[in-house]
Amino acid sequence: MLLAQLTLAGVAAPIAGGALIGLAASLMLLTDGRIAGISGIVGGSLEPRPERWRLAFLAGIALGGLILSLAFPAAIAAPVGRPLALVGLAGLVVGYGTRMGNGCTSGHGVCGLSRRSRRSFAATLAFMAAGAVSATLLSMIGVGS
């Protein structure tokens, strides 16, 4: 949805989707006192003998991905024009960086900003700015759409 062509439905979908994400994270907080940070949940699952709830959360994510790709295949789309090698390298840096910085868009962005955590404000500012720099520069030099 482009800024120049905002529609009510176009605005409602991301807000409603965001609300579902907030609801999922709220479930984890209210029942188990945990932050629903994807990078933390995945990182913890890589340790020996991961707790069952982590694996269950990831299974839920996978089931959601399966439902989306079967029922709404257009909802899942790969980045146009970004070479696979670049996307793989991006994954490596995202994995390393989110563990070093203790969180990603969910843990720092959604949960942290909502809790008014100083650390999460700083982290969110840093990854939003860095994301804008890399996306803007790469598209300026003609990588991607």
Partner: peptide
């Protein structure tokens, strides 16, 4: 680092 990778992929 996370942001740079996010904007790349």
């Amino acid at each position: 680092l996370f942001g740079l990778g996010w904007g790349a992929g």
